[in-house]
Design a protein around this nucleic acid. Structure first.
Lengths: 352, 352
DNA sequence: TTGAAAGCGCTAACAG
DNA sequence: CTGTTAGCGCTTTCAA
């Protein structure tokens, strides 16, 4: 077992001082060519690499970002992580991932664990439980300690920090309008409880569009799914709620707040004998693997998670590397969305 | 902005020495009750938390694990990460994630970036490119430096380290046998090129079972998908290869090495007018979201990724915390698999 | 051109 | 019971 060499051993080996070695390796002009060459050769031979931890301690920065997300077995979040990694690695940063599992407590623990010097800044999408508790002290305290936070997707209006979002309202308006234009008369929405900001905003877009088209809003057509926190058997629970919804509503167009709700609704609808898209057209927010491979394939809204990740990392790293500049001027970046047209909105016999 | 307090400032504030503070906080019996109380109160008030980096430097361990995987937008890998996080957090470890994107070079860079003190050990699933190059020097060098590695799923026989795998051969045998028992006469397999060990082993299982059942192996029925590395438009390329396969083969049972191949094959088969499962039964290795929500839902083999993650983390942490014990006795843990019965193997009119 | 010394934040052996 | 000192690996004045 070959121990990693340190400056100290190189110095001793070459019979020079530690600081000489350090300077030689950083090509300081204080050091003579001869010595430089000698030191560098030796370092290469023994494959010297400076110890990151020592550097971190010295420089008071770790060159690593902490990413805290609710879940990782989730297409959207993984694309975001990819984007973060991509940008961060490019800039020489590492990323530590922490999972909150939608739990407030785990979110706090993760934050505290990493805020003790392990990372330079956070990229966070807030846990549902935190949103419902409305307890955000851990975020403000972290920021207060001088550790910057970037929030994406599930953000908190009251916390002053950089944010990366999509225009949930406008995007939903586009989607619902598309259903109307496709000939749907009775359009429903499957959303989340209102404390999840994206759910609330998407529902708002839905209502706006109905209003704009002079269609009366029927509250029974707005289903707000009640998620259990930290529970794995949400799926059946979800199906039940949607089943009941279809019992009580006759819709020919459905907008959902994520692809899972859409896919599940399609399954339930099929059980009830509806044909998609002829009897029921569907659009889901958030493009993932499910949508592309579903049958029929699902029309969705792409949030461009990879880009959101890149933008988040960029915001954070910019702030870390230019601490004085633009202080207190927090940015909110709105990433554009696209409707990805697939089969669930492709009528074989267009009504118009 | 409240700066994080250090031992030093607490010491100065309370007019005692740094080591007194340090000891008081760790409840050393060397320190008088009075002082302890005073120090602790002060520390709580100012929300003192020891600096992780300083501790890491001192202790020569970081309490963080480096996980390097080919891809993160991938159900199996994310379940594994969940499992790793779960076990690691429980033991007070953090997790840094690095992505190789199936690229040899990125894998090496990631390894080197983290091996300079940032992490205590690695959990790795090897990139396809690395497997095809057969260049494993980065792994052996890392191990040589005293940094333990645990490999999972895509492991390398020649590297001596702890491993977590499933019994690919036996499991595939079970799956193919199930197809035979279900009445399939012409069974094909869609696998990967042989340098991907799991692909090779699963193909081996396929062949074994045909042999055991005295069915002649037809090479044309063995499709070995040619993945492009680092390419996002693999999907079309995949469809093409499968399309050609179906042109040249008439199969009524199909075993695939992952769920994407299965789903894609189902799509192509449908285009060719085949009904599933009546004309074609399908089983895919690796259970993910796609399988559950596909139509018809796909019978798969669950590798229990979460468990694999937990086991990997356990192996690694055990080795880190008991460095002398059981030295050089590397373990290979075989995680059990299950066939998850769904619709693609459920004949409406069983042939037998 | 090189080296000694201090310091990043913390712990621990040793002295007082 | 408390403080001094040294050291983890590195950089960076400042002095030689």
């Amino acid at each position: 077992m070959k121990q990693k060499p340190t400056l100290k051993v190189i110095a001793k080996e070459l019979d020079v001082s530690v600081s000489t070695v350090s300077k030689a390796l950083r090509d300081s002009k204080e050091i003579g060519e001869e010595t430089k060459k000698k030191v560098k050769a030796f370092a290469k031979l023994y494959n010297y690499r400076p110890n990151n931890i020592a550097l971190s301690l010295k420089n008071k920065k770790t060159k690593t970002l902490g990413v805290i997300i609710p879940e990782i077995v989730h297409h959207f979040f993984t694309t975001v992580i990819s984007g973060i990694e991509h940008y961060a690695n490019d800039k020489g940063y590492n990323v530590i991932v922490g999972l909150s599992n939608e739990s407030f407590k785990k979110e706090v623990i993760n934050l505290e664990m990493l805020a003790n010097g392990s990372i330079d800044g956070f990229i966070i999408s807030v846990a549902k439980e935190t949103l419902s508790f409305k307890d955000f002290h851990h975020f403000s305290e972290t920021i207060d300690q001088g550790i910057p936070i970037v929030m994406f997707d599930r953000v908190i209006d009251d916390i002053e920090c950089d944010k990366v979002i999509v225009d949930d309202v406008k995007t939903s308006e586009k989607a619902v309008q598309k259903l109307i234009d496709g000939g749907c008369k009775n359009i429903g929405i499957i959303s989340t409880k209102d404390y999840v900001n994206v759910g609330r905003l998407r529902t708002e877009g839905y209502k706006n569009t109905l209003n704009a088209n002079h269609i009366k809003i029927q509250n029974s057509r707005i289903l707000k799914i009640d998620d259990k926190f930290n529970s794995d058997d949400n799926l059946e629970f979800l199906e039940e709620q949607i089943y009941t919804y279809f019992e009580e509503n006759e819709v020919d167009g459905l907008f959902t707040v994520n692809e899972l709700y859409a896919i599940t609704a399609m399954k339930v609808a099929r059980q009830k004998g509806l044909t998609i898209p002829d009897d029921l057209q569907v659009i889901g927010f958030t493009d993932g693997v499910l949508s592309r491979h579903a049958f029929p394939s699902l029309t969705t809204i792409s949030q461009h998670g990879f880009e959101m990740g890149e933008e988040s990392a960029k915001l954070l790293i910019d702030r870390l590397e230019n601490p004085n500049e633009e202080e207190e001027l927090f940015k909110t970046i709105v990433v554009k969305t696209d409707i990805i047209d697939r089969e669930t909105t492709k009528l074989r016999n267009p009504k118009k």
